[in-house]
């Protein structure tokens, strides 16, 4: 098996994507952050650094909760998606 790109990996998963976001960040705090630990915490590459700015998406979230405890600046607000939404593992 060859290396799989993250978007291709996530594309095989079953998701029920909510219109309500369950991840919020404080851009002010992120712009002053020196280490952006969220990037390395998230196993689904939900956080990316573009032109020195953190951008994020919630759709591919695997609901592990790593970003919540990795951010030591108090920027990431991660809650569970509403019931019935989010990732749905069928193997696990």
């Amino acid at each position: 098996m060859s290396v799989t790109k993250m978007q291709d990996k996530l594309a095989v998963n079953k998701y029920d994507i909510d219109n309500d976001v369950h991840i919020l960040i404080d851009e002010d705090i992120c712009s002053r952050c020196e280490h952006h630990r969220c990037i390395y915490a998230c196993p689904a590459d939900c956080y990316t650094l573009e032109n020195e700015h953190i951008t994020y998406s919630y759709e591919g979230c695997l609901e592990c909760g790593s970003c919540r405890i990795a951010c030591d600046k108090g920027s990431v607000k991660w809650i569970l998606p509403r019931p019935g939404f989010g990732v749905c593992f069928v193997y696990g």
Binding site: M1, T4, D8, K9, L10, V12, N13, P43, A44, L62, C64, G65, S66, I69, V87, F89, V90, Y91, G92
Partner: peptide
């Protein structure tokens, strides 16, 4: 080798 990815998951 030759396998197909059917799920990618993560947990703490």
């Amino acid at each position: 080798d030759g396998g197909t990815l059917v799920e990618y998951s993560s947990h703490l």
